[in-house]
């Protein structure tokens, strides 16, 4: 972790000095902390049945324990450098991706400059 970094998720941190998103596994510079981090990642669309195998025979039954691929797709986001899956989304086909984290970077810097916000559990 860089000197003035804040771990935001299991895999993402923000370098407060540089105002950049970094990968917490390999340190890869993902992009500006003021932009969506997903824009700096690799994205892959997966048929949900690859992960959630049909436990019941799909030839016999409509419902099989697997998601319906025409209703649901898994979108996976990878670190371009180490290949870690940092996030995923389950979306109907074609649904706009979610800009899931948009932090107030100025406030964040301010808070950490004051020495607050230190984690006491996760991270």
């Amino acid at each position: 972790m860089a000197k003035h970094s804040v771990a935001i998720t299991e895999y993402l941190e923000i370098d407060l000095d540089a105002e950049r998103w970094h990968c917490r596994r390999c340190g890869h510079d993902i992009g500006s902390a003021r932009s969506p981090y997903k824009e700096g990642l690799l994205v892959y669309e997966r048929d949900p049945r690859e992960i959630h195998r049909p436990i019941l025979d799909p030839d016999k039954y409509e419902f099989t324990y697997a998601p319906d691929p025409s209703w649901c797709r898994i979108i996976e986001f990878y670190c371009p450098s180490c290949g870690t899956m940092m996030e995923n989304e389950y979306l109907p086909p074609g649904h706009p991706l979610t800009n899931d984290i948009e932090l107030d970077i100025d406030k964040l810097k301010q808070r950490h400059a004051q020495g607050e916000g230190k984690s006491d559990a996760a991270g």
């Binding site: 998720t9 992960i51 959630h52 099989t64 998601p67 209703w71 940092m86």
Partner: peptide, 16 residues
């Protein structure tokens, strides 16, 4: 048909 709850930080949802 669509999982009702989700994983986080790259974890998968359960199935259906």
């Amino acid at each position: 048909k669509f999982p009702s709850t989700m994983g986080i930080f790259g974890g998968y949802a359960p199935g259906c």
